[in-house]
Amino acid sequence: MMTVEAPPKVDKGRVAINREICKGCGLCVEACALHVLALSHEINRFGYHPAVYQGHGCNGCALCFYACPEPAALEVYKLEA
């Protein structure tokens, strides 16, 4: 009997946060229904705790992007179909 290996689960999206531009307001963390964002314990050069992506679990909904007030702080990527 042949067995087929199940494909590894791939996230549908990714978040990239520029930690030096982020002002740590936390609105993206609040917006994320999947709870994959958090505020870092570290501080950036302006003294803010920037938001960080935990590295997996994003579905690319981009709600965090619309909640974020900084035009260049946060980007959302989507998995190619």
């Binding site: 981009a62 900084e70 260049a72 980007e75 959302v76 990527y77 989507k78 998995l79 190619e80």
Partner: peptide
């Protein structure tokens, strides 16, 4: 897996803002 940018800085924003050197990527808000 290939990821493409879905949402990022809009094209009609300046790539860098005409502010002091270390603030050129950030708004004043």
């Amino acid at each position: 897996p290939l990821y493409t940018l879905k949402c990022g800085k809009a094209g009609c924003f300046y790539p860098e803002y005409e502010r002091k050197a270390d603030l050129k990527d950030q708004t004043h808000y």
